[in-house]
Design a protein around this nucleic acid. Structure first.
Lengths: 225, 225
DNA sequence: AAACGTAATTATGAATTCATTATTCAGTCA
DNA sequence: TGACTGAATAATGAATTCATAATTACGTTT
């Protein structure tokens, strides 16, 4: 363990940024909902100052929207925003795939293989929870493997921003099978160290995810009308 | 034009975010330099509260680094960070090029042609100031043309983060000629509406810029030693 | 009863105050 | 002389206070 890690220097506002972001991402604070400062202060046991600092940061990250003298609202993930965010995410994943392929060490590739197997097992058992977990581990390992903090940070923010989308539309059986296929291709590319290929399939994987989401949202809209 | 632009910015902290970011980008606040809150408050005529809110935002954007109980320091743009940032910027520009090629309207392309001509003229006159201006206008128009706010925001942040690099290393005659060549290719791709081609050359353009920068930094280091 | 206008209440932006942590610097001792 | 101790000072994190803008509630008018 690193020596600096043992000294925990955590400020209230940093803690709040994480907590509040989680509340938004996990859909506890609903989109469009007002975020009354006093109420949050009471329930979190802090004063308004660090809370407001945290809200400013979350606003710059796009999770909430601030209007002067009118407070903060949870930003809603519109379909347009999904359609804007996924291509950017796809571009970042493509780059990550290319870089990771060149930088990953054998032990890390082994770990990804392990996650991949766990994911396949979860798929066969139709265990969504386990599937999402393994899936996320794989993508995170690949992003990490790119050895690029800037890439990692921006990817993390964008991914969090659209994570709620999985609450919006459940995975169809058809899309699920397709996603598994794509992951198989990813592993194949990784094994033969085809950097461009891995990048390509990761980009495609993300864009297909968007297409499936949009399709699911459309049928949902039709059902609602 | 963004809808939020029509709402007048009245809060101090938003103003401060812009002002302070400019001070960092324009190298008025030097990398590694401490940012004493009181001093800044006095010179800007505001209290610590909005200033600190602004610093939190700038920290999340990567322009300053906050250490608990030790204040804020201007983040230094290390060579490693340049080498991490440019590939991400390149990926975003590639995406922007592809999207812009499909979405730009004739009037916008006309405007880009105008900027391109101005850029060529500035090059012939070896007018760096005018060259940078026209160059920036072109890139901005292309990013805007992608019609993707998320892309635009992330690009803007990353571009600002490395803008100081142009203070670090001046454009060599050789690189300048190469950059002009790349811009000519960009225009050619734009004219024939080759989206992938435009994306490719914009990505390459950015990576070549990085290579030139690194080279310039290396010779600078040698000179220093 | 509906619509408008004004007063009361509430929420927010910003300044100030308080408490705690770093830093500086003088003094002591080896 | 140089390194360590500890008090004095300065800077930061967070709470509180104050001023102002927004919202609500109420009463008046038609």
């Amino acid at each position: 363990m690193n020596l600096t890690d043992s000294i925990k220097r955590t400020t209230l506002h940093e803690e709040l940024v994480e907590r509040l972001r989680d509340l938004v991402v996990e859909d506890v604070l609903k989109p469009g909902e007002k975020v009354p400062e006093k109420q949050l202060c009471d329930s979190l046991g802090v004063s308004r100052t660090p809370l407001r600092e945290a809200l400013k940061v979350l606003a710059s990250e796009g999770f909430v929207i601030l209007q002067a003298n009118r407070g903060a609202r949870v930003a809603s993930v519109t379909r347009e925003e999904l359609e804007n965010t996924f291509p950017v995410l796809a571009a970042l994943e493509q780059l990550a795939g290319e870089l990771a392929c060149r930088n990953l060490e054998p032990a890390e590739i082994e770990w990804i293989e392990t996650c991949h197997k766990a994911m396949l097992q979860a798929y066969r058992a139709r265990d969504r929870q386990a599937y999402f977990k393994a899936n996320q581990d794989i993508h995170q390992a690949l992003i990490r493997g790119a050895r690029n903090d800037i890439l990692e940070n921006h990817h993390k923010l964008l991914a969090a921003r659209v994570r709620r989308a999985r609450f919006m539309a459940n995975l169809s059986e058809e899309r699920w099978a397709q996603a598994i296929e794509e992951h198989e291709t990813m592993m194949a590319m990784l094994r033969v160290e085809n950097a461009e290929g891995l990048g390509q399939i990761m980009k495609l994987h993300m864009m297909n995810k968007l297409a499936a989401l949009v399709k699911a949202l459309e049928t949902e809209e039709e059902t609602a009308n």
